[in-house]
């Protein structure tokens, strides 16, 4: 085997391998999406975050506008403090609301942002006042049973 042919093949091999990694990153993964652009933080407090995870998407009108950066527990108020990284291109009014939603029946959980009508926008680091916690299935079922029982009581 000539030296140059060997080098050529090894070069092709390395280029092909790195190319495959790039394809995976760009075409298959969401590297080309929100992850790389600059963002600013917002804070939201929830009574219950359900199954929300860091890096879960933040969507507004179904469009991904940011990601969950961190989830902390506030040991004084016993609530969850969620930090969101929002893409710099998007701004939201001060009275916007954040709710924890589920994609599909059993899909992953994400944060939905709904814009308000205020003329002043949220600044980096601000807190979103209006929040709606995650729907917890057990509570939902509990409520359902309770209301059914109440209905039954009425009928008697």
């Amino acid at each position: 085997m000539q030296r140059s042919t060997l080098d050529l093949w090894v070069g092709l091999f390395v280029v092909g391998g790195i190319g495959a990694l790039l394809v995976l990153a760009m075409k298959v993964g969401n590297m080309s999406g929100i992850g790389v652009s600059e963002s600013y933080p917002l804070v939201a407090q929830f009574d219950n975050i359900g199954g929300l995870k860091p890096r879960a998407p933040v969507k507004s009108a179904g469009v991904v506008v940011g990601r969950v950066a961190a989830i902390q527990f506030d040991n004084e108020k016993f609530i969850a403090r969620v930090t969101l990284n929002i893409d710099k291109h998007y701004t939201f009014p001060k009275d916007s609301s954040a709710s924890i939603l589920t994609s599909g029946l059993l899909g992953e959980q994400y944060i939905g942002l709904e814009g308000g009508g205020d003329t002043v926008n949220l600044n980096p680091g601000d807190r979103i006042r209006q929040t709606q916690s995650a729907v917890v299935l057990e509570k939902l079922i509990g409520q359902f049973l309770y209301s059914k029982a109440a209905e039954g009581g009425d009928k008697k």
Partner: peptide, 19 residues
């Protein structure tokens, strides 16, 4: 096929862990 793939596959969690 592609868009669902892209929104579900995370670069750090999935691809880097594979690497």
């Amino acid at each position: 096929f592609w868009s669902q793939m892209q929104s579900a596959v995370d670069f750090r969690e999935d691809i880097m862990n594979g690497v």
